[in-house]
């Protein structure tokens, strides 16, 4: 029964969701809405588990002389953000919650992400070399796509048309092939799960 009941629940739910998509009636919409509520409820139940796990792991790290500082910052930030947003009025205007967001989180994230420019430049220097025919195609394509940023009058106009063609024809063909493969694979896996053939999601074969 420990195996059959979960398979039955997954099978019935999967088929119900599959069928309702093709039946646009009030009752199918009700089933759809209720099932979404259930997904949200199940998801919310996992949140306390995540918070507990995060807090527990970092409280334990407070004892580590090499890592206690980072865990203390994390726990402090975690508590401050919770306390400052408990009052709904603090979410707008010049509140502590907004000021921490604007003047701490925004600069930190922007700084980290801006470092990417340096890594991309270094990677481009080493990777874009005409070592073979395929590498040369990659090099020329990358060069043209980056070159479209250069404001060089008529040259830019012609290059923009070439880049537009690259993006909308060969790029589209390759992307569509990948997307169709992913779609077919996802459908096949979903059908295997609904029919009870694929059971690894239960934690065992």
């Amino acid at each position: 029964m420990k195996r059959e009941i979960p398979i039955l629940i997954v099978g019935i739910t999967g088929f119900a969701m599959l069928i309702q998509y093709f039946i646009p009636t009030d009752w199918s919409e009700t089933i759809f809405t209720k099932s979404q509520d259930w997904i949200i409820i199940i998801g919310i139940l996992s949140m306390p588990l995540g918070i507990w796990s995060l807090v527990k792991a970092n409280v334990n790290k407070l004892k580590d002389p090499n890592e206690w500082f980072y865990s203390a910052v994390l726990l402090l930030g975690f508590l401050i953000m919770i306390v400052t947003c408990l009052n709904g009025e603090n979410l707008s205007g010049n509140s502590i919650f907004n000021n921490i967001f604007n003047y701490v989180l925004v600069p930190i994230q922007s700084t980290i992400f801006s470092l990417l420019a340096f890594f991309i430049a270094s990677a481009a220097y080493r990777a874009f070399r005409a070592r073979s025919i395929l590498a040369t195609i990659l090099l020329i394509t990358a060069f043209l796509v980056m070159f479209r940023f250069m404001p060089l009058g008529p040259v830019s106009t012609i290059n923009a048309k070439i880049v537009s063609w690259i993006l909308q024809v060969p790029n589209m063909a390759a992307n569509r092939a990948i997307m169709m493969g992913i779609g077919l694979g996802a459908t096949a896996t979903a059908m295997k799960i609904i029919l009870g053939v694929e059971r690894t999601y239960m934690g065992h074969d």
């Binding site: 990358a142 940023f149 250069m150």
Partner: peptide, 16 residues
Amino acid sequence: QVIAHAVILVFIIISN
């Protein structure tokens, strides 16, 4: 953006 891309393009040319 233009100047950063120009430098990267120059690096790619030099590298090749």
